[in-house]
């Protein structure tokens, strides 16, 4: 089966693969590319790592001064 894909295509295919959007032929092309290309393999591993990490970033809290402003804004509204 088929022609070689480029690194840019491999990066694109990796995202599409997550959603099952590759044809059998494209999956094979991606697999072959990753077997041969250590750079794209690194890209694949590192991207999954950082996607996992993005969910773990501890959320910031709202600064106290902005909370005070918000309380004033709400308190000044009549329709409550």
């Amino acid at each position: 089966m088929g022609h070689k894909i480029t690194c840019a295509q491999a990066v694109d295919y990796l995202s599409k693969k997550e959603e099952g959007k590759l044809t059998l032929r494209q999956r094979y092309q991606l697999w072959r590319h990753l077997m041969a290309c250590s750079l794209c393999k690194l890209f694949k591993i590192q991207t999954s790592q950082l996607i996992r990490s993005v969910r773990q970033v501890p959320p910031d809290t709202m600064p106290a001064t902005d909370k005070a402003v918000l309380i004033d804004r709400l308190g000044a509204e009549k329709n409550c």
Binding site: T61, L70, I71, L74
Partner: peptide, 20 residues
């Protein structure tokens, strides 16, 4: 009273909303 209610809202929900 209104202010106290507003403060309660902000203290209870602002951080969660802001973090999101």
């Amino acid at each position: 009273q209104l202010r106290a209610h507003a403060a309660q809202w902000v203290h209870e929900y602002a951080d969660a909303l802001y973090g999101y």
